[in-house]
Write a protein that binds this DNA or RNA. Structure first.
Lengths: 203, 203
DNA sequence: TAATATATGTCAGTCGATGACAGATGACAA
DNA sequence: TTGTCATCTGTCATCGACTGACATATATTA
């Protein structure tokens, strides 16, 4: 990897960290792009070359996670029930964070706090995730041998899976201390969902 | 009702209609608030006195619908299974539209087309609905006699219900011609959801 | 080292959104 | 009817997110 790429990755992370810290210090809304850029000695214009929008900072892990979900889903055996596959995809997102560098998991935990304090940002992640949700539905439809434009159950399966994810993440309770605690909550939520669903419903 | 209020309601609807038509003609993003205001001979500043944001236009029915959901939910018998109550709340939203004036249902159908062409706006509705979803969860928690801050199942119930709503609304298929067709789709989706869930799961 | 490719800063400009103030208009009592 | 009051509206100024264009600086490669 050349110097150029290393430098880019460095500023990318610097911007990310500066932004997250500012969000936690003074709130998301009252933090301007100018401040973030200033904190890492970069022009505001450059900020937008690394992140397409201010929101993009908050949705960083979300974007990343959806990519992982897609890959995991495609790697699961084709004859596995779709919801089971999706559940594994959800787990994969968190495993990825847990297996990452300490700095990365720290970013994840901090971002989670930002999302907690500004619930409306959670919706934005859904907004951005629309496209990925469609791709997940396409994949599930292919596995079920149906037309994604016609089959309601396919969309319901994906929607339920995403709901499970959100509940596992957002469920208030006390502040989680590490990623493993969040892993535990997601696992519990997945089990709860599987307990709530009729066996074979997604076949 | 005084002249003043009538006038306000009139401009409110005028702005709404002008905006919707412009969105359908030239797309959501390329329509400016200035254009909308100009189309009804009103200053841009006044636009923001009727609608808090450009998004607000699109989410108009959504806001309205969530209010109805809450009221319906509260009116359902306390011993009814929560998901059943929520399903009735979903139906109530559409009944309200169907029982409204023809002009109103037209607006509804047009707005639905706007949402279809700009999927990211669907996410915005979730963003705006975060607060209402919390209130729904509070109500469900009260009925189940649990603490909303502790009980995962409560949040899962609400999340599943909202998913059902979204799938019923957004499921592609062919363009619906009237509200009754959408009512049918929602009903089918609700039945599908109830078929997918284990009996008594939400008790 | 020269030539090329890419990253960054500066500048100008658009658009959404908000506060402040002044003028216009409906509501209401005498 | 008239005058007062509350409310609505337009104008102006301003902020902040975001984008395109262009020039400059910094890697990369031959």
């Amino acid at each position: 990897m050349g110097l150029r790429e290393r430098k880019k990755e460095k500023t990318r992370l610097a911007i990310l960290d500066a932004a997250i810290d500012l969000f936690l210090e003074q709130g998301y809304d009252s933090t301007t792009v100018e401040q973030i850029a200033g904190a890492v000695d970069v022009s505001p214009r450059t900020f937008f070359r690394y992140f397409t929008s201010k929101d993009h900072i908050v949705l960083w892990f979300h974007d990343q996670g959806e990519e992982i979900m897609l890959e995991t889903l495609q790697a699961r055996p084709a004859d596995e029930p779709p919801f089971t596959s999706l559940a594994h995809a959800l787990r994969a997102v968190l495993s990825n964070v847990a297996d990452s560098t300490p700095a990365d998991t720290q970013r994840f935990l901090k971002l989670r706090r930002v999302l907690e304090e500004h619930p409306h940002l959670v919706g934005l992640s859904v907004a951005r995730g629309t496209e990925t949700e469609r791709r997940l539905a396409d994949e599930v439809a292919a596995r079920r041998g149906v037309d994604p434009a016609q089959d309601r159950l396919t969309h319901l399966i994906v929607a339920f899976a995403m709901s499970t994810m959100r509940v596992g993440f957002d469920c208030p309770q006390s502040e989680p201390h590490d990623v493993r605690e969040i892993v535990g909550r997601l696992e519990a939520t997945i089990q709860l969902a599987e307990l709530s669903l009729r066996p074979g419903w997604d076949a």
